[in-house]
């Protein structure tokens, strides 16, 4: 059941919010001559978990990477439209990506701990940003971040071992600890569980729920169950367009758009 882009039409549902944390308007993304995102308008609310779902190649990861300008590192990638973080456009020429990324952190699809010790992995962010003055402060941050990531009990006796020596799920939680060590306001997660087994996945999902108390989280996932479990709102992307955004329960039980329905009932994806 292939759909042409023209037939999709405007976004259905509740894509805009009052007083959002981030708000994106008229977003187009190009890789060279190829357009990957078509005119997306979307808001992310404070301390909410927004999940983005859709078939592979629908542009959800691309969109996510725009939110802290990770696409800057890809050659030939062009982004237009406005991305506001608390009212300031992050693509403004004067916007500095370094503090931006300290405010909007990112967790990647494949766990990518640095080839350093567990301690140094977590301490890396605070160190480079100069957030701590003393070793005790740093120890505190490392401990609290690892605790928040639910990894402390597993690694507290081997903080000086290589981060790459952990299991896949532990590595991913280490990456999350690394991200929250610099207390970002928004955490972006790009399919954080796609490389993990079910037990590790459930641990990460619990963690996301916990973190949502303090952080705004945008998560891209290929698993509809995961989106349903962790998120407050869900956005469905298709062929680079934002088809529907709604309250998670509403979207999964009573989708407004026929494409969304087709996707969640498993007719393609």
């Amino acid at each position: 059941m292939e759909q042409s882009i023209e037939k999709i039409g405007p976004t259905i549902g509740q894509s805009l919010l009052e007083n959002p944390k981030m708000s994106m308007r008229n977003v187009d993304v190009f890789y060279g001559d190829k357009q990957a995102i078509y005119d997306v308008n979307l808001d992310i609310g404070k301390n909410e978990v927004l999940s983005m779902i859709g078939p592979s190649g629908c542009g959800k990861s691309t969109f996510l990477r725009c939110l802290n300008r990770m696409n800057d590192t890809i050659e030939g990638c062009k982004v237009t439209g406005s991305f506001d973080l608390e009212g300031k456009n992050i693509y403004h020429p004067k916007m500095d990506v370094v503090p931006l990324r300290a405010r909007v952190g990112m967790v990647f699809q494949k766990p990518n701990p640095f080839p350093k010790t567990i301690y140094d992995n977590v301490a890396y962010g605070p160190k480079i940003h100069g957030l701590v003055e003393s070793k005790t402060d740093l120890d505190e941050i490392v401990e609290s971040s690892l605790q928040k990531a639910g990894l402390w009990d597993e690694v507290k006796d081997r903080l000086d071992q290589q981060g790459t020596g952990l299991s896949g799920g532990q590595q991913q939680r280490l990456c999350i600890a690394r991200t929250i060590a610099i207390s970002p306001e928004v955490i972006l997660m790009d399919e954080p569980c796609s490389a993990l087994d079910p037990i590790a996945t459930s641990k990460i999902e619990n963690l996301i729920t916990e973190l949502s108390e303090n952080y705004t989280i945008a998560i891209v996932t290929h698993s509809m169950q995961q989106a349903a479990r962790v998120s407050d709102r869900t956005a469905y992307f298709h062929l680079g367009k934002l088809v529907e955004v709604n309250d998670t329960q509403h979207l999964f039980t009573n989708p407004d758009h026929e494409l969304t329905e087709a996707y969640i009932t498993g007719r393609f994806g």
């Binding site: 802290n68 990770m70 590192t73 990506v97 370094v98 503090p99 931006l100 990324r101 300290a102 405010r103 952190g105 990112m106 990647f108 494949k110 990518n112 701990p113 640095f114 080839p115 350093k116 890396y124 962010g125 480079i128 940003h129 990456c175 690394r178 991200t179 610099i182």
Partner: peptide, 24 residues
């Protein structure tokens, strides 16, 4: 992915090179 991880934390290019790429 290592470079992305470091850049994603908001490190500058040279910090990424000196503290992640070179050690790796």
């Amino acid at each position: 992915s290592l470079r992305d991880g470091s850049l994603g934390l908001g490190s500058t290019h040279s910090e990424t090179i000196r503290q992640v790429v070179i050690p790796a």
